[in-house]
């Protein structure tokens, strides 16, 4: 039984985000939670507003980068944090819904804004246990 989860991994100047899931979609959704966690504790972010996103790329790795960057863009232009995600992937095209709320500085204590997802330590693969891993470094 693979438990869907996210984690950060260290990088000298920036932060690595990693989603781990029973499916590629779950790993992408968990990576998105890891992205939010770079800024604030996702548990403090209510799912009040809904945004739909779509992106397509030549391969899984660039699709992950596009997905995270689509979220970075929405976070920046809507001043919003997201805490719940539904992701569907067909081939190398992704459609998703993200739920969240406007940044509340006092409650969320946002530490740092994410500038963008990079191609460093970028990987989308299945590990030996069968879990999907989706990860990259994000620039902060």
């Amino acid at each position: 039984m693979i438990k869907n989860r996210w984690e950060h991994f260290p990088h000298d100047a920036d932060i690595g985000v990693r989603g781990i899931g029973s499916s590629k979609e779950a790993a992408f959704a968990e990576a998105a939670l890891a992205l939010t966690a770079v800024v604030a504790d996702p548990a403090t972010v209510a799912a009040r507003v809904k945004v739909t996103l779509s992106c397509a790329a030549p391969d899984d790795e660039l699709l992950l980068v596009d997905w995270l960057n689509a979220l970075v863009y929405e976070m920046a232009t809507r001043n919003t944090l997201f805490s719940r995600f539904e992701v569907s992937i067909r081939g190398h095209a992704l459609e998703a819904t993200a739920w969240g709320e406007a940044v509340d500085v006092a409650r969320h204590q946002p530490a740092v804004e994410v500038k963008g997802a990079t191609l460093s330590s970028l990987s989308v693969h299945r590990d030996e246990s069968g879990a999907w891993i989706a990860q990259c470094i994000v620039d902060v």
Partner: peptide, 9 residues
């Protein structure tokens, strides 16, 4: 940040 993002890709 957005220019960096778009052109890196």
């Amino acid at each position: 940040h957005q220019i960096g993002t778009e052109f890196l890709r």
